[in-house]
Amino acid sequence: MKILVAVKRVIDYNVQIRVKEDGTGVHTDNVKMSTNPPDDNAIEEAVKLKESGKAKEVVAITVGEEKAQETVRKALAVGADRGIHIKADSYIEPLGVAKILKKVIEKEKPDIVFMGKQAIDDDCNQTGQMLSALLGWSQGTFASKIELKDKIIQVTREVDEGLETIEINLPAIVTCDLRLNEPRYASLPNIMKAKKKPIEQLIAKDLGVDISNRIQQLKVEEPPKRKGGIKVSSVAELVSKLKNEAKVI
């Protein structure tokens, strides 16, 4: 069995986002970048399947600028076997990314594709589902537990009502929730070893798929600031304010 894991390089989740004054986006210069958090869970799950003998090969793929390779390199350091970097110099919408991944998947022929359920930059939550539809494969989104059986995967999904369990046929796309597992840290020797693992580079616009963006970003602005509140001096005053001023209890 072969597993493909899609990872994305995003602004680290601990960084305070700063909106550009000219409204064209957010500051990314000299900002710490990391792997999108649930993509770490995706890698971890794939590596675990390899370690348990159920999977033979784990391939990590990313779409993005030159530096996006770092994200693939990190995946290699925690156990992926090889990497693919689809170089793209500007933002590509989830639909375009899904088309790129489909193209690669037609060649690589993995049995399972793992990725995070959502990227914490554009917050679209689309790529996995779109890829699944374009391939005509099954999907298990927001997975918090998976169990690989013969030709199927049982996926426990985080849904609004609680947990839902489905069985999906292979090949399949699984999008991972943070609860799926505890991603490991790369050890120094493994980071060194990862430097020798191969990363194949392809150019997005040479793949022969339509990656034109359809959504125009007109303006990015800071959300309305909250008015500064007050400090209360006692619990009694707090409860009185909540009851009589804010009228919320």
């Binding site: 939550n125 589902q129 699944s132 539809a133 989104t141 927001f142 609004d160 963006n213 359809r214 959504i215």
Partner: peptide, 24 residues
């Protein structure tokens, strides 16, 4: 709706119609 119901199927619809979805 952009809850686990809409998030689950709408991107599939969009992809098959070659539409870029506006989420949430």
């Amino acid at each position: 709706s952009a809850n686990t119901f809409g998030k689950n199927f709408m991107p599939r619809v969009a992809a098959l119609l070659d539409i870029s979805q506006v989420s949430d």
